[in-house]
């Protein structure tokens, strides 16, 4: 399932948060979005999955324009922040619910949860803590797992690596690579961690103040170039 963004802008008053003329993410591509705070990463994701109304332009997942129909919800998994998880449920109850609205059987669900076992590290399922009482990192694990649970064709994750412990970061990276290689999931991932995102994503888009600055295929040089870019960002503007 591919993703197309056409002439999408989002303005808040005079301030333009995002401005993307045209962007195509082919089916099965892993797409990394980077940029400093306020660059518009989350705004772009929110516009894509119809949480905010774009000022102009449109976004398509497959053939479906996301703010015109709901059909894309059946095969799009997303986790942007805690607003995506239901705090008063136990993680299992939440997974049950997600599985049931996607028509999964109990054994499907059990198999899926078994796949997440290393990611969960025994801290998520089987406990007696509601999601809202879990730590930030564990909440994130629940949210990401719920987004992957039903075998989505498109996966949208905002800063999936932040707040996770190092072991989980490594396991999550492996899981995402597997999803791409085995299932051909189209992935959109934003991150502040350049090392992780260049490792997982084959294509990197760099946003600055809402504009696309770079759109590159990941290579061995990418990480170094990006690090140079980010260490220079502030300086050049001060020298101006």
């Amino acid at each position: 399932m591919d993703i197309r963004i056409e002439g999408l802008t989002k303005t808040f008053g005079d301030y333009t948060a995002v401005q993307v003329d045209s962007m195509h993410i082919p089916s099965g591509e892993s797409f990394g979005l980077i940029g400093n705070n306020g660059a518009g990463k989350t705004t772009l994701f929110r516009s894509l999955i119809d949480l905010i109304e774009p000022s102009t332009g449109s976004a398509f997942i497959g053939e479906f324009e996301t703010n015109k129909t709901d059909s894309w919800k059946a095969f799009t998994g997303s986790y942007l922040d805690e607003n995506f998880i239901v705090g008063h449920l136990l993680p299992e109850e939440y997974f049950d619910f997600i599985a049931s609205i996607h028509g999964m059987s109990e054994s499907d669900l059990a198999n899926k949860l078994a796949e997440f076992e290393t990611l969960f590290n025994g801290e998520i399922t089987g406990g007696k803590k509601l999601i809202r009482d879990l730590s930030k990192g564990n909440q994130k694990k629940v949210g990401i797992a719920a987004a992957i649970l039903f075998d989505p064709k498109v996966l949208v994750l905002d800063e999936p690596f932040a707040n996770l412990d190092p072991s989980t970061q490594i396991r999550l990276k492996e899981l995402l690579k597997k999803l791409k290689n085995d299932k051909g999931v189209t992935m959109l991932i934003s991150s502040h961690d350049l090392a992780h995102v260049t490792e997982v994503c084959e294509r990197i888009v760099l946003l600055e103040k809402g504009d696309v600055i770079e759109d590159i295929k990941t290579s061995s040089e990418t990480l170094k170039n990006l690090e140079n870019y980010f260490s220079d960002v502030g300086k050049t503007s001060i020298e101006d």
Binding site: D50, L51, K73, A74, F84, V86
Partner: peptide
């Protein structure tokens, strides 16, 4: 209110 984005993105009419 605390999980409204979940309501909007899930596959439920």
């Amino acid at each position: 209110g605390s999980h409204f984005d979940h309501i909007l993105t899930r596959k439920v009419d």
